[in-house]
Design a protein around this nucleic acid. Structure first.
Length: 422
RNA sequence: GGAGAGGUGGCAGAGUGGUCGAAUGCGCCUGACUCGAAAUCAGGUGAGCCCGCAAGGGUUCCGGGGGUUCGAAUCCCUCCCUCUCCGCCA
């Protein structure tokens, strides 16, 4: 959510931001609701002031006295009026909130212009894509793939997109998670093991609700939501709290399975491990002082990149353009790993600065040393990393002539051996 | 899952229909005292929103929501959570 004062006082800024994100929002309607809301609020508050004054006066009067009785009669009318106007106000307030929630976050000045994915800027490329294994295959075509990653039985037991990981497949998942968490801990992120179901209030604070409920799995009869990412429980950890400035930046990481219903499917994008309804991911989260959030974004990106470097995987960093930025982000980098078999870039991390967009909605603040007053923190998050696509890239890029997969040195201690056999 | 108790400011803890954003204590901040500190004394010390250039004014918030009433922290309904005991259980 944006600062209502900013919208009110600098609507042109917001208009420009909406245009840069290539979204269409009726800002005039938002401003009109705002004006109406404030007028109604003032009216109700004035009536309440009348009530309170009468209250104090009545407290000093003898209960049964004629003055008292007269006052009661008089205030009955005011009371009825308050009730009526307050009901109207609440309706307007809901509209106002809804309108505010419909406004996207402002892109940062350093975000390039562009309409969509084709306009993203390649910020950096690491590793040699052309030096890929001559034996590379799309991972789902590797002989014996289904023995380690059983999609058929997963579909029988649960549904498409819920594979079983078996033997070295399961062991690889565990090794990657262990590697990620250990590395993230070294970078100063405190490991958290959060709940993987969240309530509606939490899903609302991070923006999954009210618009995207179709993308989450919901439980009955308790109406909890299976987390689409650890970002949701992690960000909500400090919801409605005021942190000490000295505690910032707070850095945490969490592994959770992630559950996504993903309404549409996109042909070859969904083959093999590329796109699943359930997958494993380690998420990095930071709560930072507003003055430092863009430095912190660069550090966050570096922390995620280091993981790919240690895994010796070729990857590139995309700086997302305005049109591909996403609703809530001010600035975002995507990390894409090279799948030598598919000959495609696979997104494995998305590192974003949300500025105060999430923290305003979630009311996460810190007490400013300077002013002594609470201020909103900036929140950042990024994957560190998503397992299945990293796994896919490892399998494809490191496939040997003998059909085995050789693992990078960094992973060997976690996996316990150097080769994966199918 | 069953029975009981309870949710009040940073913490502890009063308040059971009116002048209560809320006593008191602790904590914290400022000042006095001191070479400095402790102790002591005095004062201050919640968050949000609206109006206002500001000074300031108004209003909301006592777990959430709804109701009764001229008026609710206080009465009623409902949901959530915590604690104690019992049951079940990885």
């Amino acid at each position: 959510m944006l600062d209502p004062k900013l919208v009110r006082e600098s609507p042109d800024l917001v208009r420009t931001a909406i245009a840069r994100k290539h979204l269409t929002v009726d800002l005039e309607a938002v401003l009109a609701v705002d004006t109406a809301w404030r007028a109604q609020l003032q009216e109700v508050e004035q009536l309440r002031a009348t009530q309170k004054a009468a209250n104090s006066a009545m407290a000093a009067l003898p209960k049964g006295s004629p003055e008292f009785v007269a006052k009661v009669q008089e205030m009955k009318a005011v009371s009825a009026q308050v009730k009526e106007r307050d009901a109207t106000l609440k309706v307007t307030e809901d509209k106002f909130r809804e309108a505010m929630l419909g406004l996207p976050n402002l892109p940062h000045a350093s975000v390039p212009d562009g309409a969509g994915p084709d306009d993203n800027v390649v910020h950096a490329t690491h590793g040699d894509v052309n030096a890929a294994s001559p034996h590379a295959l799309p991972h789902w075509e590797i002989p014996g793939f289904e023995r380690l990653f059983d999609f058929g039985r997963g579909a029988k037991v649960t549904g498409a997109g819920f594979p079983f990981y078996i033997g070295d497949g399961a062991r690889l998942v565990r090794a990657l998670l262990s590697f990620f968490l250990d590395e993230d801990a070294k970078a100063g992120y405190v490991e958290v093991n959060p709940p993987i179901f969240v309530n509606a209030a939490s899903a609302t604070a991070t923006g999954q609700l009210p618009d995207k409920e179709g993308q989450m799995y919901e439980t009955t009869p308790d109406h909890l939501y299976a987390v689409p990412t650890a970002e949701v429980p992690l960000t909500n950890f400090f919801r409605d709290e005021i942190l000490e400035e000295a505690a910032l930046p707070v850095k945490r990481c969490a592994y959770t399975p992630c559950f996504r219903r993903e309404a549409g499917s996109y042909g070859k994008d969904v083959r093999g491990l590329n796109r699943l309804h359930q997958f494993d991911k380690v998420e990095l989260l930071k709560w930072v002082h507003p003055a430092t959030s863009y430095d912190e974004l660069e550090k966050l990106r570096a922390d995620a990149e280091r993981l790919l470097q240690k895994l010796e995987l070729p990857y590139r960093v995309l700086l997302m353009c305005g049109g591909d930025l996403g609703f809530a982000q001010s600035k975002k980098y995507d990390l894409e790993v090279w799948g030598a078999g598919q000959k495609r870039w696979l997104e494995v991390s998305s590192c974003s600065n949300f500025e105060a967009f999430q923290s305003r909605r979630a009311q996460i603040r810190f007490r400013s040393r300077e002013s002594g007053k609470p201020e909103l923190v900036h929140t950042l998050n990024g994957s560190g990393l998503a397992v299945p696509r990293v796994l896919a890239a490892l399998l494809e890029n490191n496939l040997q002539a003998d059909g085995r997969v050789r693992l990078p040195a960094a992973l060997v201690p976690h996996f316990g051996k150097e080769y994966v056999s199918f």
